[in-house]
């Protein structure tokens, strides 16, 4: 009797965690909304959007990065499915694959940054570019670190009773980062002409 009461409490508490995390993500999305609307406003009102010597942004590498990130949303879903079937090693495999894709995305972003001819002081174009991609990259990094934490936790015995909430939250965060990237890709790379 006492143990069921205890479990009930634990379940409720875990639900709080997920509720709190969803509320936090809603709030976090507003900061991106602020950056996106600021970017659009500055771009629409700019006289010379591109700094001297910059023709535009190369979009092939970022497109590959986009495919990588979108497919990582698929792999994290598969990892969650494996978890639901209590196949822990299947979960770890897909989870690790997601982490690898996230890591590849970050590496691709770093390669792109190092090849650019402008810095963050190159007018509002440079400033907003590095602000948006950098702030998003920070979220990708956070996501990868969260996944590493969850992977480590999966090796603690008997951690799954109510422990899936952490995985759910990480997965939710990862989809969030993915959606933000798609909007960002459209705003920065697809919409080149101001």
């Amino acid at each position: 009797m006492e143990s069921t009461g205890n479990q009930h409490n634990q379940g409720m508490h875990a639900n709080h965690n997920l509720t709190g995390f969803i509320i936090f993500l809603c709030s976090e999305s507003v900061i991106f909304l602020a950056f996106f609307s600021g970017y659009a406003l500055l771009k629409l009102n700019a006289l010379d959007w591109l700094p001297h010597g910059v023709e535009g942004l190369e979009w092939q590498t970022p497109l590959i990065n986009t495919f990588v990130l979108v497919s990582s949303s698929g792999t994290i879903y598969l990892a969650e499915r494996q978890m639901a079937r209590h196949n822990v090693w299947g979960f770890r495999g897909w989870w690790l694959a997601t982490m690898a894709l996230g890591g590849y995305f970050l590496w691709g972003q770093a390669v792109e940054w190092s090849g650019l001819k402008f810095g963050f002081t190159s007018g509002t174009f440079g400033g907003t570019f590095y602000l948006l991609t950098g702030f998003h990259g920070l979220h990708v990094l956070t996501g990868v670190l969260l996944m590493a934490l969850m992977l480590g936790k999966s090796f603690i015995p008997n951690n799954y009773k109510g422990g899936e909430q952490g995985i759910q939250a990480t997965s939710l965060f990862w989809h969030f980062v993915d959606v933000i990237w798609i909007i960002l890709f459209v705003l920065i790379y697809v919409w080149q002409r101001s």
Binding site: I31, A34, L47, W49, F120, T121, G123, T124, G127, L131
Partner: peptide, 27 residues
């Protein structure tokens, strides 16, 4: 979050020399 976003941009303008809100840099 909107204020935080604005404050981050203002801090960058102040410390590292971006020009989000500086008219002379197109801000």
């Amino acid at each position: 979050p909107a204020l935080t976003g604005g404050a981050i941009m203002l801090l960058f303008d102040l410390v590292v020399g971006t020009s989000f809100f500086q008219p002379e840099g197109g801000g």
